[in-house]
Design a protein around this nucleic acid. Sequence first.
DNA 1: AAAAAAC
Length: 488
Amino acid sequence: MTQPYSSIALADPLQRAVADMGYENMTPIQAEAIPVVLTGKDVMGAAQTGTGKTAAFSLPLLQRLLKHENSSASPARHPVRALVLLPTRELADQVAQQVAQYAKYTKLRSAVVFGGMDMKPQTLELKKGVEVLVATPGRLLDHIEAKNAILNQVEYVVLDEADRMLDIGFLPDLQRILSYLPKERTTLLFSATFSPEIKRLAKSYLQDPVTIEVARPNETASTVEQRFFSAQDDDKRRAVRQILKDRALKQAFIFVNSKLGCARLARALERDGLKTAALHGDKSQDERLKALEAFKAGEVDLLVCTDVAARGLDIKDVPAVFNYDVPFNAEDYVHRIGRTGRAGASGLAVTLVASSDARSVAEIEKLIKKKIEVEALALDGERPRGRSHDSRRSWGDDERGGAARRGARSSGGSTYHRAPTARDPFFDRPYEPSAAADQPGWEAAPRVATRAGLSANIKPRRKVAALFKAPTPAAAAAVEVTATAADA
DNA sequence: AAAAAAC
C-alpha cells in the first residue's frame, strides 16, 4: 500500500529535495493526487488535515513547470506560471517555504506576497521574475494593480483551503484575481472540508475535474482524541489549567472566537503564570509571526488564537487543541482540531461547552458524523458556584464525592471520568441536530462581506446576487441556494 | 453572535 516517491515520475531535482526532507513514502492524498496533477487535469481534492496536501500539489506542479521549462514565454518577461492562493498570511508563508524547499534544486523561482508587510521587497522580488507565486488575495490584487505581477500567462492556479477561498468573504477578491488569469489553465482545489454548496460552487470553476477524496470530507483524524466538557465561562480558564496539568500537556493551541477574547484570555493565562502568546488579526504582522515562531521554538507553551490559526498551520507535535469557545462554524471545528494529531501523531482536542453552545455542538456532531458526549468535568478545589445545592447535577456533587472520584481516577490512570448519570440537566438529552441543520446548505450560511460593505449575515437574496457576478449560471445557482438556506 | 483578507 505504501508507495515511495521514487516510484513516480518526478524529476531528479524534486526527488532529491523530497529525500532531503526525510520523506520516503507518499501519503494517500499524495499517491492519489500526484499522478492526476501530472496529467494537467483540474482537480478537486479532499483529504484530512495534516496528511500532506501541500506536497500533493506542489511536487507535480513543479514537475509540470520543469517539463515545459523552455516554453514559448519570453524569458526576459519571467511571467508567473503558477499561482497558489491561501486565506491567511501565516499559511501563505508556510506554503511558500515548502514550495521553496521542493524547488531548491531546480531553476524555478518562487516568491510569496501577503499583507501587513512592506510592499517594496515583494515588488523587487516580483520584478526579478518568479515562476511560482504564493499569495493572499488582498495583497496580490495590490501587486496586480501596481503592475508588479503579470498573471496573463498563468498555467496553474491552486486554491488551498478552497472552501474558505470560495466563501463569501473571499469570493469577490478571488473572482477579481481569476479575471486576470487566462481561461485556458489548470485549476486545483484542495481542502479538508467541503460543504455540498461550496462543492457545487467550486465545480463551476473547474473544467472536467477529477475528484480525489482519500477520506470522507469533513472527517476528523482518528489519531485525535476528541473530548467535550461542560464548562460555563467562569470555569473555563480553570478547566484549561486543570486539563493541561492532569494530562501533562506541554503545549496547546487555545482557540477563541473573537479577537478581543483572544487578547484577554492570553493576558489572563499569562497572569496565571503560563507562558502564552496571542495570535489574532488585530496584531501587527510582525507580532503574529513572532508569536508563531515562539510557539514553534517552544518558548511559549500556549498559543491563544482566533480562527486565523484554524487552518493549515503545520507545527510538529502539538499535543493538544482547546476550543475555549465552540466555533460558530462546524467546518472550523474540523480545521482547528487538525492542528494536533498531524502526520500520524496522537493528539487531544478538548472543547469546552457552555449552555448556549448546544446548537453549535449539534452542528459539529452532524458534520463529523460522530456521536458527541458532553462530559462533566470535576474541577479541583472549591466547588463551582451556584449549583452546589443540587447533588443530581455534575457541578453540584459535594466535595466528598468529588474527592472520592478523583481518588479513583488517579489510581485508574484515566484523567477524566464520564458521569452520564450526573450531567448538567442541559445535557441530559442526547444532542439532536436542530431542524435548521437539516436544511441543505445550512452549514454554509453566508458570512459577512466586510469589504463589500455589508455588515450582517445576508438576508435579502438580491443583495447576494448583486454582490458578485458568478462566473456561470451553475455558480449563481449555488449561491442562491446558500442564501435561501440562510434565510430559512 | 466572528474572523479573515489591502492600504
